[in-house]
């Protein structure tokens, strides 16, 4: 079953700005799906329309086969949204915020309280349940928004930049938690600027730019489109000059760091053989940037892949 089916979705704001230009894409049930794009590409507008916070100009949106135009109530019950911006009543306590949200979905208060204790504990903010939202740190507020989105047990969880402004430790905790949710069968759609995370977590990816979907495929196929990768080599001993390696573009970053572009049809074995021939001993290596990021930059800057 399709968790999300978007067909010819267009949004033109009152000021004439066209945020979406007839986009179409599907998300399968159980998928971990990334919607990527530069700022202003139309990601938040798309998410806003799916969650009925933004009115579409034309096109159709179906959530688990419930058309937003015909079965809005049923469609809304399937969705949990974690928005990009904090949107709490800051004078209420953490638990009040999440229990109320569940109440709007018809979850009885007793059950909502039990679930809130579970999820607040799961995300490490249970001790803050009676604290006013305005006293919570940015990371705590981010976690609270995730708890709020889960209390009515949605089948589709949408996260708009969920790790923005969150430190590395917490970011990893959140990704692990989202991975667990996905394992339990919850479909997850996210937008993120941390493409490294999208690369490690998501199975399918759509890239949106200037209101149009420019890629929509599996991560594996998408990454196959990369013609080359840049590797950074850390050397055991310093070298003075850039070595000439047959077929590879090499750059000496500093005396102990080399960057080498390796094309898809080239082999790292060949590269290592040449380095050995130059008496260069490699201590360690890494990708210069994550592969998805390289591809993303190339796609959205209209460069060749």
């Amino acid at each position: 079953m399709k968790a999300l089916e978007i067909t010819d979705l267009t949004k033109i704001y009152k000021n004439g700005v066209q945020a979406l230009d007839s986009i179409s894409f599907d998300v399968r049930e159980g998928d971990f799906f990334a919607l990527l794009g530069p700022n202003g590409a139309g990601k938040s507008t798309t998410i806003g329309i799916i969650s009925s916070l933004v009115t579409k100009t034309s096109g159709s949106v179906k959530i688990f086969e419930h058309d937003l135009d015909k079965e809005l109530d049923a469609a809304k019950r399937c969705i949990g949204l974690v928005p990009q911006e904090f949107n709490f009543n800051i004078f209420e306590t953490a638990q009040q915020v999440v229990v109320q949200q569940a109440g709007y979905y018809g979850v009885p208060r007793k059950i909502a309280l039990e679930r809130s204790e579970y999820y607040l504990n799961k995300l490490g903010i249970l001790e803050k349940k009676d604290a006013r939202v305005q006293t919570l740190s940015g990371g705590m507020k981010r976690r609270l928004m995730i708890v709020r989105a889960l209390l009515h047990e949605p089948r589709l969880l949408i996260l708009d930049e969920p790790t923005a402004g969150v430190d590395i430790d917490l970011r990893r905790t959140l990704w692990e938690f989202l991975g667990e949710l996905n394992q339990k069968g919850i479909t997850i759609i996210l937008t993120t600027h941390y493409l490294e995370e999208a690369e490690s977590m998501c199975r399918n990816i759509a890239i949106i730019d200037h209101g149009r979907i420019i890629e929509n495929t599996s991560k594996k196929i998408l990454l196959q489109k990369l013609n080359s990768e840049i590797f950074i080599f850390y050397l055991q001993k310093p070298i003075k000059a850039t070595p000439i390696l047959n077929g590879f573009t090499v750059n000496l970053e500093d005396e102990t760091t080399l960057s080498v572009e390796v094309h898809k049809n080239q082999q790292l074995n060949d590269l290592f053989n040449q380095l050995t021939a130059h008496n260069i001993v490699v201590h360690s290596m890494r990708n210069k940037t994550n592969r998805l990021e390289e591809l993303f930059v190339k796609l959205t800057s209209k460069g060749s892949i």
């Binding site: 009925s52 809005l72 049923a74 809304k76 949204l81 949107n87 009543n89 949200q101 709007y104």
Partner: peptide, 18 residues
């Protein structure tokens, strides 16, 4: 208006509450 100002009105708009 406070709900609108803080955008917490979205909590209600998102929900299936008629």
């Amino acid at each position: 208006f406070s709900l609108k100002f803080q955008r917490s009105i979205d909590e209600i708009t998102l929900s299936p509450l008629p």
